[in-house]
Design a protein around this nucleic acid. Structure first.
Lengths: 328, 328
DNA sequence: TCTTCGTATGTCAACGGTGACATACTCCAA
DNA sequence: TTGGAGTATGTCACCGTTGACATACGAAGA
């Protein structure tokens, strides 16, 4: 690995001049430029990004931290962010945080400590105040969930509204006992979706039955077990609402296994092949593509104009996509 | 953002001593350690990872570059790598390269230029020689495809064998006209899978019909079109073989749309819900989890013992998972 | 009492670029 | 002929941390 000084020595110029050539500075004569480029070629010189970033104090890259890349929602969000960043020739580094609140901070700070110019992150823990000290340095936008104990941009979906609409839809189809499957209530989105579900029930004057609500189904295995448990009760629900796509993907085979694909089912969160299942699965589409796009655009806006005043919280609408599974 | 010197000044010691405290050096008195820790607390000091990495020349993190994170195969590979890295307290940075060969090098070098200690990458272009100069510095393992013009570790699946087995399976079920849907042949895996398909046909003494082979179906849209095209021919195939999961995910709804779910279909590459479709979809399981695990373990092995001699190419077996779609 | 050793701390330079500033040369208008 | 203005190049310090090395002290052994 050769350095600028070595290139400079070979080309018979100063390191600074090599730096100028690398950065397309106007003030370099054609002759010198040629010699330097030849030396670069000869030594296979590649600039040390780290040194540059270190000196300037700011990397050109941005980072995105999500709970789980293999979750179709976050995969699509990430893809959208990458698309926008690519158009701006900005590198994107993705990191998975997992679902343990304790892993959030080290994961996010691994990104921040490398001086990324911007950060898109998903709050996992119940406290993002540790990010305050980074705000002056790094633009940040939160996605999917609003951050706690810090004022910052966030792009979230209308969880309450979506869950409410879905539940109302099931109510309209005559269902009175609607099961709810969700992961931890400590996850803000889950809490809001549960609230939406409750609001719809309340709106229809139906008393909530705690036996119909299963929370804490974090893994695929747990989600499947939750579905079996709900349907195995003495007074089983006639419809199910799954509060996230990951769970839904596990619930579908579980329903098939017990031969209960007849039950009405709506998933919060669309996913590949939901429309190819039998019956096709009704979903609340969160439009992850828009989430990524809006978040990335906002991030770049903040990076370009740090002082501009903008609305902090962007709530994207979600839309119920009724397919066969809720209208039998 | 405070620096070590500021912490040092507040604690009344030298910067080096703060460095010692940060690195749990043995030779620090309890008194000093306490004072320094208090100063760190007070100033909310967070070390500058970049400066440390720059000085030491090597980041603790590793990088992984894949064509597309939303591809279930690569998502699972990445997840496995992250799991192993997490156990070693190593941060992982993921980056998507896309499918354009020209994007490979900048994407990978963005990672390398930040001095990652190790790299797991997927060859996109037909030439990885540009990575030679990095080899002395950075351990690297290639996944899914073997690299070209460079000697390095790779973890690949048995593409030829898997495609051959799948095709033979279809032949055994009496199919004589088997359609092949794949992306660009410039993608090494596709080329090998096509070769496996051909080998099986040849083994059965069946002449290859070029009309049954559609290549270049890179996007979901193209894959769906390919399926429609194949089945719309005068002499349509009675079975289909899709050479990757991404395509398969697009082909399934296309078959449903034209009411041809009766056709025998095998996908190279399993994906979520393949076993929940109607009919359940037969696949060649590439075991992405093992790919990620093996690649990560090999990478850490290389990082720990750069001189050790190890077998360069690891070919993981794939297994045909026959489900309903090929045995009707 | 004088080494020697282990412990505890400090000094300085260096990692590889680049920003601030200096220098030197050419050209042209006053 | 002089003095800008514009062009082309160089010098030097610095970003924050840490490795190499120096120093200082107390304790233990000769």
């Amino acid at each position: 690995m050769s350095t600028m000084r070595e290139v400079a020595a070979l080309a018979g110029v100063s390191a600074k001049t090599v730096s100028r050539v690398m950065n397309d500075d106007r003030y370099v004569s054609d002759d010198v430029r040629r010699r330097v480029q030849q030396a670069i070629q000869e030594l296979q010189y590649v600039p040390n990004t780290l040194a540059r970033t270190f000196r300037s104090g700011r990397d050109a890259a941005i980072g995105i931290a999500v709970p789980d890349i293999s979750d179709p929602f976050f995969a699509t969000v990430t893809q959208a962010v990458e698309r926008i960043a690519r158009a701006r020739k900005t590198a994107v580094f993705v990191t998975s945080l997992g679902n343990d609140p304790l892993d959030e901070r080290p994961g996010v700070e691994a990104l921040l400590g490398r001086q990324v110019a911007g950060l898109i992150s998903t709050p996992i823990s119940a406290d993002q105040s540790y990010l305050k000290r980074w705000q002056a340095r790094t633009a940040m936008v939160f996605i999917d969930r609003s951050p706690t104990n810090i004022t910052a941009d966030s792009v979230v979906e209308d969880d309450h509204g979506g869950a409410c609409t879905a539940t109302e839809h099931l109510l309209e189809h005559g269902h009175r006992r609607i099961g709810f499957i969700g992961d931890a209530v400590s996850v803000a989105t889950t809490a809001r979706r549960l609230a939406g579900y409750r609001a719809a029930l309340a709106g229809a004057g139906i008393a909530e039955d705690p036996d119909l609500i299963v929370l804490g189904a974090t893994t695929a295995h747990e989600a499947a077990a939750a579905a079996r448990h709900l349907l195995g009760q003495a007074q089983p629900p006639t419809a199910l609402f799954s509060s996230n796509a990951r769970s839904s993907i596990a619930v579908v085979p579980a329903l098939q296994a017990i031969g209960r694909t007849d039950i009405a089912f709506i998933s919060f969160g669309d996913f590949p092949l939901a429309d190819a299942l039998n019956p096709t699965l009704s979903v609340v589409d969160q439009d992850p593509n828009s989430v990524g796009q809006v978040a990335a655009n906002r991030l770049f806006e903040r990076m370009d104009q740090p002082t501009k005043r903008l609305k902090r919280k962007l709530v994207l609408p979600v839309v119920l996509v009724p397919r066969a599974s809720c209208c039998s």
